[in-house]
Design a protein around this nucleic acid. Structure first.
Length: 651
RNA sequence: GCCGACGUAGCACAGCGGUAGUGCAGCGGUUUUGUAAACCGAAGGUCGGGAGUUCAAUCCUCUCCGUCGGCACCA
């Protein structure tokens, strides 16, 4: 912005197009002028200009020399502007329909946009239809977007004068150097940084208002609650339809729906936030747990089991009682007896095991793992199926090590973690490195933080991981690496984590004897691969839409007979499969084979072995795999050999 | 916790001031069947809990609980 202002007065504009062609124009010149000089078609298609990487209004004078690109509907940048403009069109529609509603902010977001309105009465779903219709009118009116720059004080006065308190507040909080720009579309206008399309017609009609929701002003729960309307917007109807279709498909794989259909688990009012795992769901649980168990034992971890209830003194010492006491379950067994806390995490318990006996530097690192059941009294609104619950089991571990071992331990852990994700079918993982929070809320010296952050950074690079750094997002006791997975509906879930902690060993007085025969504090690495068993199984359900890989499937084979002639043979097949360690169910019911196939396919049995008179006589099985209607007829021994191979746990 | 919507049979849903219906599942019977729904029959519900308004409440009002969509939170 500042650089732009300094050379805005130049007489000539030297521009380079994406194809490398250099052009010179007399000032003032706009993106539209340049497009027109190239061709009428381009000028017609042009939506905005991109000057040195910054998208600006098509009709705004180009304020600097450099690279120029004309943004059309085909450009990747177009979607963002369309969505942002859709938000403006929605705000205009709302203020036209509901006078007195205050505007606040309305950004473009993934897949669409939202706008937050200040208003006493919330919008109804009927209102959405009206607003959408009004938006289409505004698009049809094709009102031109025009940019104006206003003096700051006038802008504040103006918005306050018309009762737009939120807008006035926004301007007041803008840095003094920021230009105050206002965009007009027809009679309506809004404080906005831009850029915008040439006119509302360019928004098109490939948008749809999706839902109303409450949202706090400036994202702070201490502030007033605004009325947010979410919409989705696309470049054309085809894209919109595809998006809506994707949402429908995503809904079909909702873990709550599949969990019921496949009889995996349920939840009920008497135990809000806790899961009842049914036989089939708990089978998946055990398969997953044993898979992780195999991996961590090979990686040199020990496995422990620690108590659920602790005297409150332990959590007071660890600091959790003060910080998170409100979200802990507290137990008073008898009046006048001491108060217990149900553990909300396993770390203090693991330190207690570490503290048993004297540790030498030669003992380190100690990698202590636990499938630890924890309870947190999460806010009622936070609960979500089995993804966010009040009782959950972490695949937790704490690595006690020397400072000079941190980097190698972190690197080993990343490899372990990525291997697990790969074997579970996840390739796209977003890695984030949360760095030190503000100086008044963090513990430890800058040198310690430097070393900790550099250590994690180096380990991430050594593991070949791309990562995003999040300044200020670390825990008070140390930086953390977060691993985020994306579910079927596009929501992201933080699963794995590695956190460096210099604090807890100090508070709980953990120490080891160093080479110098003096006591030293170990560094503690907190880490979880899956995060929570509950959440991860939920993610797996949605990721696979219930069609689990064979090694995880709760029932791996259903043996289904065609007539009762095959019953004895079916029982024999079942026995042999069980002997081979395959999870098998047999269906001898007096039903048609069509009926059986349908029923077992609907609950996602990976394989159905169909047995009729023919198979019984020949000692064969007809295998039908989920998702295909092809049959493979094999001799029983071959079939068992094959499924044993195919259902092997990934090594 | 906050804003909004919702809660009717095991599941999916309809009904909406005069004490409830459909489909599937379940149950009983008939059917022995070759790769995604055989046929017949009977049954199943204090309409989430509590209070209020009314001659009368599943329906209206209040309140509590829970679920869902967001927001905030997530050691």
């Amino acid at each position: 912005m500042q650089a732009a202002a300094t050379n805005a007065s130049q007489k000539e504009r030297k521009l380079t197009l994406p194809d490398g062609k250099a052009l010179t124009f007399a000032t003032p010149v706009t993106g539209y002028d340049v497009a027109k000089s190239i061709g009428e078609g381009l000028a017609k298609a042009a939506l905005a200009a991109k000057l040195n990487g910054e998208v600006i209004d098509l009709h705004r004078p180009l304020f600097a020399d450099g690279a120029l690109e004309i943004v059309t509907r085909k450009s990747a940048d177009a979607l963002d502007i369309i969505r942002h403009d859709a938000a403006h069109v929605m705000a205009e529609a709302v203020q036209e329909l509901f006078p007195g509603t205050q505007v606040t902010i309305g950004p473009s977001i993934e897949n669409g946009f939202y706008y937050d309105f200040g208003r006493d009465t919330p919008f109804t779903t009927d209102d959405l239809a009206k607003i959408e219709a009004k938006m289409k009118e505004i698009v049809a009116r094709n009102e031109s977007f025009t940019r104006e720059e206003w003096p700051r004080d006038e802008a504040i006065q103006h918005f306050e004068g018309i009762g737009e308190r939120y807008k006035a507040e926004i301007i007041r909080d803008l840095p003094a150097t920021e230009t105050i720009s206002v965009y007009k579309q027809g009679k309506w206008y809004d404080l906005c940084r831009g850029p915008h399309l040439p006119a509302t017609g360019a928004v098109g009609t490939a948008f749809k208002l999706m839902k109303v929701a409450g949202a706090y002003w400036r994202g702070d729960s201490k502030n007033a609650m605004l009325q947010r309307i979410y919409g989705t917007a696309w470049r054309d109807q085809k894209e919109l339809d595809a998006h809506l279709h994707m949402l429908e498909e995503a809904e079909k794989r909702d873990h709550r729906k599949i969990g019921r259909e496949m009889d995996l688990f349920h939840m009920q009012e008497e135990a809000t936030g806790s899961v009842f795992w049914h036989d089939k769901g708990y089978t998946i649980w055990r398969a997953l747990e044993n898979f992780i168990r195999g991996r961590i034992h090979r990686a040199g971890y020990q496995e422990v089991k620690t108590p659920q209830l602790f005297d409150s003194s332990l959590f007071k010492a660890s600091g959790h009682w003060d910080l998170y006491g409100d979200n802990m379950f507290k137990v008073e067994a008898k009046a006048d007896e001491k108060v217990f806390g149900v553990k909300p995490m396993n770390c203090p318990a693991h330190v207690q095991i570490f503290n048993q006996g004297l540790k030498s530097y030669r003992d380190l690192p100690i990698r202590m793992a636990e499938f630890g059941c924890c309870h947190r009294n999460e806010p009622s609104g936070a609960m979500h199926g089995i993804m966010r619950v009040r009782q959950f089991t972490q695949d937790d571990a704490h690595i006690f090590c020397r400072a000079d071992q941190v980097e190698q331990e972190a690197l080993d852990y990343f490899k372990l973690q990525l291997g697990v994700y790969r074997d579970l079918g996840f390739d796209k993982i977003n890695v984030k490195l949360a760095l030190r929070p503000g100086p008044n809320v963090r513990l430890g010296s800058d040198e310690v933080w430097d070393r900790a952050e550099d250590g994690l950074r180096n380990s991430l690079r050594a593991a070949g991981l791309d990562f995003e750094e999040l300044p200020g997002e670390g825990a008070f006791y140390g930086p953390k690496v977060e691993f985020h997975l994306t579910d079927a509906i596009g929501r992201t879930w933080q699963c794995g984590t590695l956190q460096l902690d210099f604090n807890l060993p100090e508070r709980l007085d953990a120490s080891y004897i160093g080479e110098d025969s003096h006591r030293h504090r170990p560094v503690m690495l907190h880490r979880a691969i899956l995060g929570s068993m509950e959440r991860f199984i939920g993610i797996l359900i949605e990721h696979h839409a219930g069609k689990f890989p064979l090694w995880l499937a709760p029932v791996q084979v259903v043996v289904a007979t065609i007539t009762s002639d095959a019953d004895d043979y079916a029982k024999d097949v079942q026995k042999q499969l069980e002997k081979a360690g395959i999870r098998v169910k047999t269906d001898l019911r007096n039903e048609k084979i069509n009926y059986k196939i349908r029923e077992h396919s609907l609950v996602k049995a990976p394989q159905i072995w169909v047995l009729g008179k023919r198979e019984a006589e020949e000692g064969k099985v007809a295998i039908r795999r989920l998702g295909s209607d092809a049959q493979e007829v094999l001799a029983l021994a071959d079939a068992i050999r094959k499924i044993t191979e195919d259902s092997a746990v990934p090594q």
